[in-house]
């Protein structure tokens, strides 16, 4: 069975450390992978694709050396493999223009400002992953323990299969 990955792209090691720690609860089902730059993220995405897995969620910093977070997200939006991936910007600073571009061209789903509140971060990730699995997965029951139980049960009822 293929796994649904969460990828975190962030150039600051210390920030990456705490993000993973905050999201540890999801690793029971959703393995987390890291990248320090857009380039590393591209490699990572390629690898995950080759191994036959999927990417359910991308958490991305904006200001990084090399390509910016939003550039990466726009790229992901254009690639059929990552088009459906939920995209969340986690940033300390992105100008209005950048944000508008992200919403319009990268179909950005959420924006989280640094420093974040861990409960909010977990909540956002939970909601986004719930959206992802409802849209993309057939077998939903296994997610009820970790994700939004109500929405998943609702989806199971509407879809008419377990």
């Amino acid at each position: 069975m293929s796994d649904i990955y969460i990828i975190c792209v962030e150039d600051e090691p210390q920030v990456l450390d705490v993000i993973i720690r905050d999201l540890a609860v999801f690793e029971e089902i959703f393995p987390i992978e890291l990248a320090h730059s857009a380039d590393e993220a591209r490699e990572l995405i390629k690898e995950i694709k080759q191994e036959g897995h999927k990417i359910g969620l991308a958490l991305c910093d904006h200001i990084m050396p090399g390509d910016k977070g939003i550039d990466l997200m726009i790229e992901m939006q254009k690639d059929p493999f990552t088009e459906k991936t939920r995209k969340v910007l986690v940033t300390g600073q992105a100008g209005l223009e950048d944000t508008i571009e992200a919403v319009n061209n990268a179909k950005l789903n959420r924006y989280i400002a640094k420093p974040w509140n861990p409960r909010e971060l977990v909540e956002v990730v939970k909601e986004e992953l719930t959206q992802y699995v409802i849209q993309e997965e057939k077998e939903l029951l296994r997610f009820t323990s970790l994700l939004d139980q109500e929405k998943i049960q609702e989806a199971i009822r509407t879809k008419g299969y377990v």
């Binding site: 920030v15 705490v18 300390g92 600073q93 400002a113 420093p115």
Partner: peptide
């Protein structure tokens, strides 16, 4: 200020979360 917001928010995030853990 915009630059500083970014420069300070990163270590501030790391700091806050590390202390909590």
């Amino acid at each position: 200020t915009a630059g500083l917001a970014h420069e300070i928010n990163n270590p501030a995030s790391a700091l806050l979360r590390s202390v909590e853990y």
